[in-house]
Design a protein around this nucleic acid. Structure first.
Length: 456
RNA sequence: GCCUCAGUAGCUCAGCUGGUUAGAGCACUUGACUGUUAAUCAAGGGGUCCUAGGUUCGAAUCCUAGUUGAGGCGCCA
């Protein structure tokens, strides 16, 4: 069985060669004595044009084939240098593997993203989602390749956790109890794990454990947030890449993050040129230029204090006043990436805006944190140097109401050969938004989970 | 969670200052067409105008509530 991809690669030497193909009809234009079928077999972004003529014994049946039908085709490759496509397949046999009903919802025309979300079982067959999900697959492999080439050890951090200490957002409860089984005083005593358990919001704390053994490690897996977020960059279930490096400070952490983002972009440009062309043409006209610039230019790095100063100097009225002690609003992030025309690292954040484990700077007011903000996807990476000093860590946990008892093992790491170390979390789906130019996270996840939406 | 906007044919949308039987393009069905490229041309079928209530002689159109979706904000990746 030939594939469309293989034929596209070798058609010049295949004139007159017989091939067998199977795939799905993307478009069909029958005429009186012949017709054209655009077939996609899943191997390649492009469709292949199949021509069939009256001489075929089931010609009248073929003429009635609907879009979406699955076909088996035998025919000859014919070079057609003077037509819109360099070659086509002249059919010798067209067999219908699976018919498509006349009410097939996907038409050869533009559909709204909302409609396609409601038809998540059919949208992978559209050009846009063919491109997006192939890029998603390539991006997944590229992540493993980047770390594997640098001798990082991959670990699968647990999806069910007992700790809810991280404060990264609301968590989903995991329980086998029925509502009436919860006891008032000790609700989870009789539960499956004998304690309250949740779906993970981050694998970082477990990655820190492995980093103190393997030095450089990463996790890559699903994470869950039960926040009622209604935005284009939030999902209830999403994937995160979380490297963790021992003997590493914040600057080296950023070096790694920058190299990582650059590597991923480069890989996508190499491995998915047709998909990027399509996305550049129909989704985001500046996409290719933007990606090429990311490969070349160094990312801007500035402290939070400097960023606030830049915002104060800006000749723009913000709804939220830039606050040297506060978080950046998304309008601020948008201004910064536009102003610097590319990704921006913001470092050394006010300690009250960040999590307990981030390393306290010598000024005792800021922590060694970094966010990488990018156009379109907002905060793509959040990371920090971790607090390795036991006494300081304990003090921060007390200040922020984090239970020492629950995280005894995390504190143990600071007793037995503690090292300076750092890491970050990269939102995989946001990275995919960034490299595809797709504006909504629901359109880069095969079956997105958001508040009130768990179909499919 | 807060704010704003929207819901009319399978899809994309027009109609909305109230007024006969609710329209277009695409899709679908039938027919025409000897090279189409989201083919073209002709005809036909297809509607709980989101739901409930209200105002009115009369509501797709105005009002109220609900519901679903989208966008923005907050939270973060």
């Amino acid at each position: 069985m030939a594939t469309v991809k293989a034929i596209f690669n070798e058609y010049e030497s295949m004139d007159g060669k017989q091939v067998s193909l199977s795939g799905w009809v993307r478009n069909h234009r029958p005429q009186k004595a012949f017709g054209f079928i655009n077939l996609n077999d899943g191997s390649f972004f492009e469709t292949i044009q199949v021509v069939y003529e009256e001489a075929l014994e089931n010609f009248e049946t073929i003429k009635k084939i609907n879009i979406g039908s699955a076909l088996n085709i035998t025919g000859k490759v014919v070079l057609t240098p003077n037509r819109n496509q360099p070659f086509e397949i002249k059919a010798e046999a067209v067999e219908i593997e699976g018919e498509s009903n006349e009410d097939y919802p996907m038409q050869p025309k533009r559909h709204s993203r909302e409609f396609l979300r409601k038809n998540a079982h059919l949208r992978p067959r559209t050009n846009l989602f063919t491109a997006v999900f192939r890029v998603r697959s390539i991006l997944t492999h590229a992540i493993h390749t980047f770390f594997e080439e640098r001798d990082f050890v991959h670990l699968a951090s647990p999806i069910i956790t007992a700790s809810d200490a991280e404060g990264a957002g609301e968590m989903f409860k995991v329980t086998t109890l029925k509502p009436q089984d919860f006891k008032k005083d000790a609700p989870f005593q009789d539960d499956f794990f004998g304690k309250a358990t949740n779906l993970t919001v981050s694998g970082q704390l477990q990655a820190e454990i492995f980093a103190q053994a393997f030095r450089n490690v990463y996790t890559f897996g699903p994470t869950f947030r039960a926040e009622a977020s209604h935005t284009s960059t939030h999902a209830s279930e999403f994937w995160m890449v979380e490297p963790e490096m021992a003997f590493c400070d914040l600057a080296e952490d950023m070096d790694n993050a920058e190299a990582f983002v650059r590597f991923l972009v480069k890989r996508i440009l190499e491995k998915a040129p047709h998909e990027i062309d399509f996305l550049n043409k129909f989704v985001d006209k500046g996409l290719r230029a933007k990606l090429e610039k990311v490969i070349e230019a160094d990312f801007v790095r500035m402290t939070h204090a400097k960023a606030v100063a830049v915002l104060k100097d800006a000749n723009v009225t913000f709804e939220n006043t830039p606050d040297p002690l506060g978080d950046l609003a998304s309008e601020h992030e948008k201004y910064l990436v536009k102003h610097f025309d590319g990704p921006v690292f913001v470092t050394d954040w006010p300690k009250d805006t960040k999590a307990f484990y981030m390393r306290l700077n010598d000024d005792e007011k800021t922590v060694a944190a970094m966010d990488l903000i990018v156009p379109g996807s907002g905060e793509l990476i959040g990371g920090s140097q971790r607090e390795e000093r036991l006494d300081v860590l304990k003090k921060r946990m007390k200040e922020m109401n984090v239970s020492e008892d629950e995280l005894w093992w995390y504190l143990d790491l600071r007793k037995y050969g503690t090292t300076k170390h750092a890491g970050y979390g990269l939102g995989f789906d946001r990275m995919l938004m960034y490299v595809t130019g797709v504006a909504n996270i629901r359109d880069v996840i095969p079956f997105p989970r958001t508040p009130n939406n768990c179909e499919f």
